[in-house]
Simulated assay, not measured.
Amino acid sequence: MTTPPEIKGWCPGALRPMMSGDGLVVRIRPFGGRLRRAQVDGLATLAAAHGNGLIDLSSRGNIQIRGVREDSHPKLIDGLARMGLVDETPEIESRRNMLVTPFWLTGDSTERFTAELTAALSAEDAPRIPHKFGFAVDTGREPVLQTASADIRLERDAGGGFILLADGLPAGKPVTSDSMVSEALALAHWFVAHRGAHNRMAALLASGQRLPAGFFVPRQRQSYQPKPGFTPLGAMVGLAFGQLQVETLASLAKHGGLRMTPWRMLLVESARQLPEIEDLITDPDDPLLRIVACTGAPRCPQGFIETRPIARQLAPHLSDGQFLHVSGCAKGCAHPRPAPLTVTGTPDGLNLIENGHASDAPARENLTLQDLTKAI
């Protein structure tokens, strides 16, 4: 009988890192979803000095330094603190779980809401939300973060007004620019008071719990599809599986500040040409952009397979538009939602799941890589 994978129930931070197969994973939550050029360069230097040279971008717009030694962690935190990249306490850090649309302009409502929400979540009376509970500040003209993980969402309706959304429902509550953040905090307090054993908003609402009155304005449906290329604010570049070397990060620092995204992509501010740097994906048709693969073995102690070599071998066999999730175990950390195709590693081989999660019953099981190339 296979031992079920261990579910931690929390995400790593900088002040509270998580041990993995290659050392500590130190997750940095950039304030406002942005790193200034000096911070990018400093992060590359710190990651080279205290990590194993690998950096991950998470699906929540965070950046992770891998392979940090326990005796080196205090020096890493000291360096991050000097650059203004850590919170005062681990508790504040865990609450400041925010996604921000990368397409904000200096002085606009998104920048204001992000700053106000950051301050509110750092206050002593902030709601004691679960570790994986998060917010999305998606208040551009059109939403771009609806496919990303969040529990409370700040958006605009079709008429341009602001609405507050509880994840899992199609309608939001109309709010003003002055009440948006206070209403978001009130909704978070409501969740804490009613959540019971639930850690996520959508799960609570699916259980039958009803929201307070006022959530009736239809939300816009997202049409934005992220891809590498130019935007009015700079160049969007992709990273296979969201991972890069410290040398790549240091090279990016020469081109501009970075805005985080949940799509394993980075927006290089003010870049007028796509940086020609190894490891970057600039071709919007590259099939690696349509594959999500977790760290896998041996860097994850729960992984049964080396996920990314398998993903690279399967990439040329994907048909146009086909999406694939490769998971080292049944947890499916890298893509917790259903996927059209999922390959899950097991002690006996590879399972292929169609339109499901990594833990769902497979359509075919105990496959070889050669079997998979034919099956997809």
Results as ranks from 00 to 15, higher is better:
325 H>I: 00
316 P>Y: 12
344 T>W: 01
338 P>S: 06
321 G>S: 04
330 A>D: 08
298 P>V: 11
308 R>G: 05
297 A>V: 04
327 S>F: 12
304 F>N: 13
340 P>D: 08
317 H>M: 02
324 L>A: 04
307 T>D: 02
298 P>T: 13
330 A>S: 15
299 R>T: 15
308 R>K: 15
304 F>G: 00
324 L>K: 03
330 A>C: 01
330 A>N: 06
308 R>F: 05
324 L>S: 07
334 A>W: 01
334 A>Q: 07
305 I>S: 05
314 L>D: 06
331 K>S: 05
316 P>L: 11
305 I>A: 04
306 E>D: 12
337 R>T: 14
298 P>R: 07
318 L>N: 13
314 L>N: 08
302 Q>S: 14
339 A>P: 00
323 F>T: 14
336 P>K: 04
340 P>N: 08
301 P>C: 05
316 P>M: 12
337 R>N: 11
297 A>T: 13
298 P>N: 07
309 P>Q: 11
300 C>P: 06
339 A>F: 03
333 C>F: 02
335 H>P: 00
318 L>S: 13
309 P>D: 11
311 A>G: 11
316 P>R: 12
335 H>S: 13
315 A>V: 10
298 P>K: 10
322 Q>W: 00
310 I>H: 07
314 L>I: 10
339 A>E: 03
318 L>T: 13
313 Q>T: 07
319 S>G: 14
307 T>K: 05
327 S>E: 12
324 L>F: 06
315 A>W: 10
315 A>F: 10
311 A>D: 09
305 I>Q: 05
326 V>Q: 07
338 P>W: 01
329 C>F: 08
328 G>R: 04
340 P>S: 10
311 A>L: 09
329 C>K: 10
329 C>S: 13
332 G>Q: 07
328 G>W: 08
324 L>N: 06
343 V>G: 03
312 R>C: 11
342 T>N: 02
319 S>P: 00
337 R>Q: 15
307 T>S: 15
311 A>I: 10
325 H>N: 11
328 G>E: 09
299 R>K: 14
316 P>V: 09
323 F>N: 06
297 A>M: 12
316 P>W: 12
346 T>G: 02
317 H>Y: 15
316 P>E: 14
313 Q>L: 12
313 Q>I: 00
307 T>C: 14
329 C>A: 11
319 S>H: 14
325 H>K: 04
328 G>D: 08
329 C>E: 10
326 V>K: 05
337 R>E: 15
313 Q>S: 13
325 H>Q: 09
319 S>C: 03
339 A>K: 05
323 F>E: 14
329 C>P: 12
306 E>N: 11
314 L>F: 09
327 S>V: 08
304 F>T: 00
338 P>N: 06
297 A>Q: 13
307 T>I: 02
297 A>G: 03
336 P>T: 08
340 P>I: 08
321 G>C: 03
299 R>Q: 14
318 L>R: 08
308 R>H: 02
343 V>A: 02
322 Q>H: 01
323 F>R: 15
303 G>V: 05
312 R>W: 01
300 C>R: 06
315 A>K: 10
327 S>G: 13
322 Q>V: 06
320 D>Y: 01
325 H>M: 06
298 P>E: 10
299 R>P: 00
300 C>F: 09
337 R>C: 00
317 H>C: 09
346 T>D: 02
332 G>N: 07
303 G>N: 04
332 G>A: 10
302 Q>I: 01
322 Q>C: 02
323 F>V: 15
302 Q>T: 11
339 A>Y: 01
313 Q>D: 13
